[in-house]
Protein backbone atom coordinates (compact mmCIF):
# COMPACT_ATOMS: atom_id res chain seq x y z
CA UNK A 1 0.00 0.00 0.00
CA UNK A 2 2.72 2.44 1.01
CA UNK A 3 4.64 1.57 -2.14
CA UNK A 4 1.66 2.53 -4.19
CA UNK A 5 1.24 5.83 -2.40
CA UNK A 6 4.88 6.68 -2.82
CA UNK A 7 4.67 5.90 -6.50
CA UNK A 8 1.62 8.02 -6.80
CA UNK A 9 3.20 10.98 -5.07
CA UNK A 10 6.18 10.74 -7.39
CA UNK A 11 3.76 10.62 -10.28
CA UNK A 12 1.95 13.69 -9.03
CA UNK A 13 5.17 15.65 -8.60
CA UNK A 14 6.52 14.77 -12.02
CA UNK A 15 3.10 15.51 -13.45
CA UNK A 16 3.14 19.01 -11.99
CA UNK A 17 6.67 19.65 -13.21
CA UNK A 18 5.80 18.41 -16.67
CA UNK A 19 2.68 20.55 -16.77
CA UNK A 20 4.54 23.65 -15.68
CA UNK A 21 7.07 23.00 -18.42
CA UNK A 22 4.30 22.51 -20.97
CA UNK A 23 2.58 25.63 -19.73
CA UNK A 24 5.73 27.68 -20.19
CA UNK A 25 6.46 26.57 -23.72
CA UNK A 26 2.90 26.93 -24.87
CA UNK A 27 2.53 30.31 -23.22
CA UNK A 28 5.59 31.62 -25.04
CA UNK A 29 4.11 32.38 -28.48
CA UNK A 30 1.22 34.23 -26.95
CA UNK A 31 3.39 36.31 -24.64
CA UNK A 32 5.72 36.95 -27.52
CA UNK A 33 2.86 38.26 -29.63
CA UNK A 34 1.66 40.38 -26.72
CA UNK A 35 5.13 41.84 -26.22
CA UNK A 36 5.52 42.67 -29.90
CA UNK A 37 2.08 44.26 -30.00
CA UNK A 38 3.17 46.61 -27.23
CA UNK A 39 6.61 47.34 -28.67
CA UNK A 40 7.60 50.20 -30.93
CA UNK A 41 7.39 48.89 -34.48
CA UNK A 42 10.71 50.28 -35.66
CA UNK A 43 12.36 48.71 -32.66
CA UNK A 44 10.66 45.38 -33.36
CA UNK A 45 12.35 45.25 -36.75
CA UNK A 46 15.70 44.84 -35.02
CA UNK A 47 14.46 41.53 -33.63
CA UNK A 48 15.06 40.07 -30.22
CA UNK A 49 11.78 41.02 -28.53
CA UNK A 50 10.72 37.99 -26.53
CA UNK A 51 8.58 38.19 -23.42
CA UNK A 52 8.56 41.87 -22.59
CA UNK A 53 8.29 44.95 -24.79
CA UNK A 54 11.58 46.80 -25.11
CA UNK A 55 10.24 50.19 -26.17
CA UNK A 56 6.71 50.32 -24.83
CA UNK A 57 4.01 51.93 -26.97
CA UNK A 58 0.27 51.81 -27.59
CA UNK A 59 0.77 52.94 -31.20
CA UNK A 60 0.08 49.57 -32.80
CA UNK A 61 -3.28 49.37 -31.09
CA UNK A 62 -3.92 53.01 -31.86
CA UNK A 63 -3.34 52.30 -35.55
CA UNK A 64 -5.75 49.34 -35.44
CA UNK A 65 -8.43 51.41 -33.74
CA UNK A 66 -8.23 54.28 -36.21
CA UNK A 67 -10.12 52.06 -38.62
CA UNK A 68 -13.85 52.53 -38.91
CA UNK A 69 -16.37 49.69 -38.80
CA UNK A 70 -14.71 47.88 -35.92
CA UNK A 71 -17.78 48.21 -33.71
CA UNK A 72 -20.16 46.91 -36.37
CA UNK A 73 -17.60 44.26 -37.16
CA UNK A 74 -17.53 43.18 -33.54
CA UNK A 75 -21.33 43.13 -33.36
CA UNK A 76 -21.68 41.04 -36.48
CA UNK A 77 -18.95 38.67 -35.34
CA UNK A 78 -20.63 38.36 -31.97
CA UNK A 79 -24.02 37.78 -33.55
CA UNK A 80 -22.81 35.18 -36.00
CA UNK A 81 -20.91 33.40 -33.27
CA UNK A 82 -23.94 33.35 -30.98
CA UNK A 83 -26.49 32.37 -33.62
CA UNK A 84 -24.14 30.04 -35.45
CA UNK A 85 -23.14 28.24 -32.29
CA UNK A 86 -26.70 27.94 -30.97
CA UNK A 87 -28.23 26.68 -34.18
CA UNK A 88 -25.19 24.63 -35.13
CA UNK A 89 -25.08 22.88 -31.78
CA UNK A 90 -28.78 22.05 -31.83
CA UNK A 91 -28.63 20.77 -35.41
CA UNK A 92 -25.52 18.71 -34.77
CA UNK A 93 -27.10 17.16 -31.71
CA UNK A 94 -30.34 16.29 -33.53
CA UNK A 95 -28.57 14.63 -36.43
CA UNK A 96 -26.19 12.79 -34.11
CA UNK A 97 -29.05 11.54 -31.98
CA UNK A 98 -31.11 10.31 -34.92
CA UNK A 99 -28.24 8.35 -36.44
CA UNK A 100 -27.39 6.88 -33.07
CA UNK A 101 -30.81 5.18 -32.89
CA UNK A 102 -29.94 1.66 -34.01
CA UNK A 103 -33.42 0.75 -35.20
CA UNK A 104 -33.97 3.91 -37.27
CA UNK A 105 -34.94 2.87 -40.80
CA UNK A 106 -32.97 5.49 -42.74
CA UNK A 107 -30.01 5.36 -40.40
CA UNK A 108 -27.44 4.07 -42.86
CA UNK A 109 -28.49 6.52 -45.55
CA UNK A 110 -28.35 9.55 -43.28
CA UNK A 111 -25.04 8.40 -41.84
CA UNK A 112 -23.52 7.98 -45.27
CA UNK A 113 -24.80 11.34 -46.45
CA UNK A 114 -23.18 13.13 -43.55
CA UNK A 115 -19.92 11.18 -43.63
CA UNK A 116 -19.36 12.03 -47.26
CA UNK A 117 -19.72 15.76 -46.62
CA UNK A 118 -16.37 15.62 -44.87
CA UNK A 119 -14.55 14.33 -47.91
CA UNK A 120 -16.27 15.72 -50.97
CA UNK A 121 -16.72 19.30 -52.00
CA UNK A 122 -17.82 20.88 -55.23
CA UNK A 123 -15.33 23.71 -55.02
CA UNK A 124 -15.57 27.45 -54.70
CA UNK A 125 -17.36 28.29 -57.95
CA UNK A 126 -20.41 26.00 -57.51
CA UNK A 127 -20.76 26.99 -53.87
CA UNK A 128 -20.67 30.63 -54.85
CA UNK A 129 -23.30 30.09 -57.55
CA UNK A 130 -25.51 28.27 -55.06
CA UNK A 131 -25.32 31.04 -52.53
CA UNK A 132 -26.21 33.52 -55.25
CA UNK A 133 -29.18 31.46 -56.45
CA UNK A 134 -30.46 31.14 -52.90
CA UNK A 135 -30.33 34.90 -52.52
CA UNK A 136 -27.86 34.71 -49.66
CA UNK A 137 -25.43 37.24 -51.10
CA UNK A 138 -24.93 40.13 -48.71
CA UNK A 139 -27.23 38.39 -46.29
CA UNK A 140 -26.47 37.59 -42.68
CA UNK A 141 -27.65 33.98 -43.06
CA UNK A 142 -24.78 33.17 -45.38
CA UNK A 143 -22.66 33.07 -42.23
CA UNK A 144 -24.92 30.51 -40.63
CA UNK A 145 -26.48 28.23 -43.23
CA UNK A 146 -23.74 26.85 -45.51
CA UNK A 147 -21.62 25.71 -42.59
CA UNK A 148 -24.43 24.86 -40.19
CA UNK A 149 -23.34 21.30 -39.48
CA UNK A 150 -19.91 19.77 -39.62
CA UNK A 151 -19.82 16.04 -40.19
CA UNK A 152 -16.87 15.80 -37.86
CA UNK A 153 -18.81 17.14 -34.89
CA UNK A 154 -21.82 14.96 -35.68
CA UNK A 155 -19.79 11.78 -35.55
CA UNK A 156 -17.82 12.71 -32.47
CA UNK A 157 -21.07 13.36 -30.69
CA UNK A 158 -22.65 10.18 -31.99
CA UNK A 159 -19.66 8.16 -30.84
CA UNK A 160 -20.27 9.54 -27.40
CA UNK A 161 -24.02 8.89 -27.45
CA UNK A 162 -23.21 5.31 -28.39
CA UNK A 163 -21.41 4.85 -25.10
CA UNK A 164 -24.46 5.84 -23.08
CA UNK A 165 -26.23 2.83 -21.59
CA UNK A 166 -29.00 1.63 -23.87
CA UNK A 167 -31.03 0.56 -20.86
CA UNK A 168 -31.53 4.19 -19.93
CA UNK A 169 -33.37 5.02 -23.13
CA UNK A 170 -35.26 1.76 -23.25
CA UNK A 171 -36.66 2.21 -19.79
CA UNK A 172 -37.67 5.72 -20.70
CA UNK A 173 -39.45 4.38 -23.76
CA UNK A 174 -41.28 1.87 -21.64
CA UNK A 175 -42.40 4.77 -19.48
CA UNK A 176 -43.97 6.20 -22.65
CA UNK A 177 -41.45 8.92 -23.37
CA UNK A 178 -41.35 10.11 -27.00
CA UNK A 179 -38.17 10.35 -29.01
CA UNK A 180 -38.12 14.06 -28.53
CA UNK A 181 -38.41 13.75 -24.78
CA UNK A 182 -35.60 11.21 -24.66
CA UNK A 183 -33.45 13.51 -26.77
CA UNK A 184 -34.12 16.59 -24.71
CA UNK A 185 -34.38 15.09 -21.24
CA UNK A 186 -31.85 12.28 -21.29
CA UNK A 187 -29.37 12.47 -24.13
CA UNK A 188 -28.60 16.19 -24.12
CA UNK A 189 -27.97 16.53 -20.38
CA UNK A 190 -25.72 13.49 -20.40
CA UNK A 191 -23.65 14.88 -23.25
CA UNK A 192 -22.89 18.22 -21.65
CA UNK A 193 -19.09 18.00 -21.73
CA UNK A 194 -19.00 16.92 -25.36
CA UNK A 195 -21.61 19.50 -26.28
CA UNK A 196 -19.55 22.16 -24.56
CA UNK A 197 -16.54 21.10 -26.60
CA UNK A 198 -18.45 21.15 -29.85
CA UNK A 199 -19.89 24.54 -28.95
CA UNK A 200 -16.35 25.76 -28.47
CA UNK A 201 -15.27 24.36 -31.84
CA UNK A 202 -18.17 25.96 -33.65
CA UNK A 203 -17.80 29.25 -31.82
CA UNK A 204 -14.09 29.52 -32.58
CA UNK A 205 -14.61 28.62 -36.23
CA UNK A 206 -17.39 31.18 -36.52
CA UNK A 207 -15.41 33.87 -34.77
CA UNK A 208 -12.27 33.30 -36.81
CA UNK A 209 -13.73 33.06 -40.28
CA UNK A 210 -13.31 35.94 -42.67
CA UNK A 211 -13.25 34.29 -46.07
CA UNK A 212 -17.04 34.02 -46.35
CA UNK A 213 -17.31 37.71 -45.61
CA UNK A 214 -14.82 38.41 -48.35
CA UNK A 215 -16.56 36.24 -50.92
CA UNK A 216 -20.19 36.82 -50.04
CA UNK A 217 -20.64 39.98 -48.02
CA UNK A 218 -17.87 42.41 -48.89
CA UNK A 219 -20.45 44.44 -50.80
CA UNK A 220 -22.30 45.35 -47.62
CA UNK A 221 -20.43 47.33 -45.02
CA UNK A 222 -22.99 46.61 -42.30
CA UNK A 223 -22.34 42.88 -42.54
CA UNK A 224 -18.57 42.68 -42.39
CA UNK A 225 -17.07 40.82 -39.47
CA UNK A 226 -14.30 41.76 -37.10
CA UNK A 227 -11.89 39.19 -38.52
CA UNK A 228 -12.52 40.50 -42.01
CA UNK A 229 -11.83 44.05 -40.92
CA UNK A 230 -8.67 42.86 -39.21
CA UNK A 231 -7.50 41.07 -42.33
CA UNK A 232 -8.10 44.27 -44.20
CA UNK A 233 -6.03 46.31 -41.76
CA UNK A 234 -3.21 43.81 -42.01
CA UNK A 235 -3.27 43.95 -45.79
CA UNK A 236 -3.41 47.73 -45.76
CA UNK A 237 -0.38 48.00 -43.54
CA UNK A 238 1.50 45.37 -45.53
CA UNK A 239 0.84 47.14 -48.79
CA UNK A 240 1.59 50.54 -47.26
CA UNK A 241 5.10 49.39 -46.51
CA UNK A 242 5.77 47.76 -49.85
CA UNK A 243 4.03 49.87 -52.44
CA UNK A 244 4.85 53.30 -53.62
CA UNK A 245 1.82 53.37 -55.87
CA UNK A 246 -0.56 55.40 -53.75
CA UNK A 247 1.86 58.17 -53.05
CA UNK A 248 3.16 56.18 -50.15
CA UNK A 249 6.87 55.98 -50.33
CA UNK A 250 9.82 56.75 -48.18
CA UNK A 251 9.01 60.43 -48.54
CA UNK A 252 5.86 60.06 -46.50
CA UNK A 253 5.68 59.32 -42.82
CA UNK A 254 5.93 55.58 -42.18
CA UNK A 255 3.08 53.45 -40.97
CA UNK A 256 3.42 50.80 -38.34
CA UNK A 257 5.08 47.65 -39.65
CA UNK A 258 3.04 44.58 -40.61
CA UNK A 259 4.63 42.42 -37.91
CA UNK A 260 3.53 44.79 -35.18
CA UNK A 261 0.03 45.15 -36.58
CA UNK A 262 -0.27 41.40 -36.92
CA UNK A 263 0.58 41.06 -33.26
CA UNK A 264 -1.91 43.71 -32.14
CA UNK A 265 -4.63 42.17 -34.29
CA UNK A 266 -3.99 38.73 -32.87
CA UNK A 267 -4.49 40.08 -29.38
CA UNK A 268 -7.59 42.10 -30.29
CA UNK A 269 -9.41 39.19 -31.90
CA UNK A 270 -8.26 36.53 -29.47
CA UNK A 271 -9.20 38.19 -26.19
CA UNK A 272 -12.99 38.06 -26.75
CA UNK A 273 -13.00 34.39 -27.69
CA UNK A 274 -10.73 33.55 -24.77
CA UNK A 275 -13.35 34.99 -22.47
CA UNK A 276 -15.81 32.34 -23.65
CA UNK A 277 -13.68 29.51 -22.38
CA UNK A 278 -14.18 29.88 -18.62
CA UNK A 279 -17.93 29.61 -19.16
CA UNK A 280 -17.51 26.30 -20.92
CA UNK A 281 -14.82 25.04 -18.62
CA UNK A 282 -17.23 24.25 -15.84
CA UNK A 283 -18.53 21.42 -17.99
CA UNK A 284 -15.10 19.85 -18.06
CA UNK A 285 -15.15 18.84 -14.41
CA UNK A 286 -15.38 15.35 -13.17
CA UNK A 287 -18.08 13.94 -11.03
CA UNK A 288 -20.93 13.49 -13.40
CA UNK A 289 -22.94 10.46 -12.46
CA UNK A 290 -25.72 8.74 -14.23
CA UNK A 291 -27.57 8.46 -10.94
CA UNK A 292 -28.61 12.07 -11.07
CA UNK A 293 -30.29 11.56 -14.41
CA UNK A 294 -31.94 8.29 -13.47
CA UNK A 295 -33.85 9.85 -10.65
Amino acid sequence: MRQVKKGERLFQISLYLFMIFMGLITLYPFLNVLAISLNDSLDTIKGGVHLLPRVFTWNNYREVFTYPNLVTGFNISFLRTAVGTGLGLLSTAMVAYVISCREFVARRLVTALFILTMYVSGGLIPEFMLVRKLGLMNNFWVYILPGLISGWNVFVLRAYIDTLPVSLMESAKLDGASELTIFLRIVLPLCKPILATIALFIAVAQWNSWFDTYIYCSGKQALTTLQYEMMRILQDVTSATTSSMYGINEYNAPRTSPESIQAAITIVVTIPILLVYPFLQKYFVKGLTLGAIKS
Binding site: Y160, C191, P193, I194, K286, G287, L288, T289, L290
Partner: peptide, 10 residues
Protein backbone atom coordinates in the same frame (compact mmCIF):
# COMPACT_ATOMS: atom_id res chain seq x y z
CA UNK B 1 -10.78 15.70 -21.88
CA UNK B 2 -14.49 16.15 -22.43
CA UNK B 3 -14.81 12.42 -23.05
CA UNK B 4 -12.83 11.60 -19.94
CA UNK B 5 -14.88 13.75 -17.61
CA UNK B 6 -18.06 12.16 -18.90
CA UNK B 7 -16.99 8.75 -17.63
CA UNK B 8 -19.25 7.55 -14.84
CA UNK B 9 -17.57 8.25 -11.50
CA UNK B 10 -18.99 5.00 -10.11
Amino acid sequence: LAAIVSIDEN
